[in-house]
């Protein structure tokens, strides 16, 4: 292992204007709904930003464009980050973020395919995205498509047995068109994975399941870009990027605090504190 602790390193990362802007969009949703998985969304921003800004092929005006790359947010509770990116890319108006979780909104507390342009699969119950992603990757191969499948999972989600069933299948079928990303924010709902269900040695686990494994700072956009953009089809091996992140990244009083996994009935003054802590976006 390298001497650098990627978890610590990610804490030192300074967020640029784009990262701040996207975080403010997340807070727009949080404000609109008065609730949300803030910590779980803030850890995801650079992962999704890198994918949508630099890696994925998509057409916002044709969300079902056949040649698009498929992205499944398997940790569906991080949907505010996904909604912020989809709005930013023009899949729908950013004004919709303010309707988050409202009665008539199409933006619910977990993402739903068919309702939200750009959402490939409905998620929310954990451990579903990777099996679906395996099926998509197989289907794309059968169709001789060059599109790739990206599945973003949480660290707590890796407790689910279905993830490891699907990992075996991805190896068996040599799915070079499948890329998994773990948002390893080191905090489940109750507390650190070490207190709930230890995951380490996580890289070794995935390697032994037949994956190529990259481990990096999940708030470092150039590192993410390098890991996610490299051509993979010829490798015949699925890839997993273990991205060390900080839950609540960008809002210091929420960082690393399990209480911010999910919040509801958020008062306006708390919203102001979040905005202020984030700084200008």
């Amino acid at each position: 292992m390298a001497a650098l602790d990627p978890h610590l390193d990610s804490k030192q990362e300074r967020l640029d204007q784009r990262s701040l802007k996207l975080r403010h969009a997340i807070v727009d949703g949080l404000e609109g709904g008065g609730r949300g998985h803030l910590g779980s969304s803030l850890s995801l921003v650079e992962i999704l930003r890198t994918l949508y800004d630099h890696v994925l092929r998509f057409k916002p005006d044709q969300p079902r464009w056949e040649e698009r790359d498929r992205l499944i947010l398997s940790k569906g509770h991080g949907c505010l980050a996904l909604y912020a990116l989809l709005a930013d890319k023009g899949f729908f108006s950013a004004r919709e973020l303010r309707n988050f979780c409202k009665f008539d909104s199409f933006l619910g507390g977990h993402p739903e395919a068919g309702k939200i342009p750009g959402v490939e699969a409905s998620t929310g119950a954990l451990g579903h995205g990777l099996p679906i992603g395996v099926g998509m990757a197989l289907g794309l191969r059968l169709k001789k498509s060059a599109a790739r499948v990206f599945v973003v999972m949480g660290d707590g989600e890796l407790n689910e047995g279905s993830i490891w069933e699907a990992a075996m299948a991805a190896d068996k079928h040599r799915l070079g068109n499948l890329c998994c990303i773990v948002d390893y924010n080191h905090l489940q709902a109750y507390g650190p994975p070490e207190q709930v269900q230890p995951l380490e040695p996580l890289s070794d686990k995935w390697r032994s399941f037949g994956f190529d494994v990259l481990e990096l700072n999940g708030h470092n956009v150039p590192a993410l870009f390098e890991a996610l953009s490299a051509p993979r089809a010829e490798t015949g091996r699925p890839l997993i990027v273990i991205a060390h992140t900080v839950k609540g990244k960008g809002v210091p009083f929420a960082e690393g605090d399990p209480a911010w996994h999910h919040k509801s009935n958020l008062p306006l003054e708390t919203m102001a504190r979040i905005r202020s802590a984030l700084g200008e976006g």
């Binding site: 579903h128 099996p131 679906i132 099926g135 289907g139 279905s162 699907a166």
Partner: peptide, 8 residues
């Protein structure tokens, strides 16, 4: 899940 992905 895989069947669902293929159906998608």
């Amino acid at each position: 899940g895989m069947a669902a992905g293929l159906a998608m």
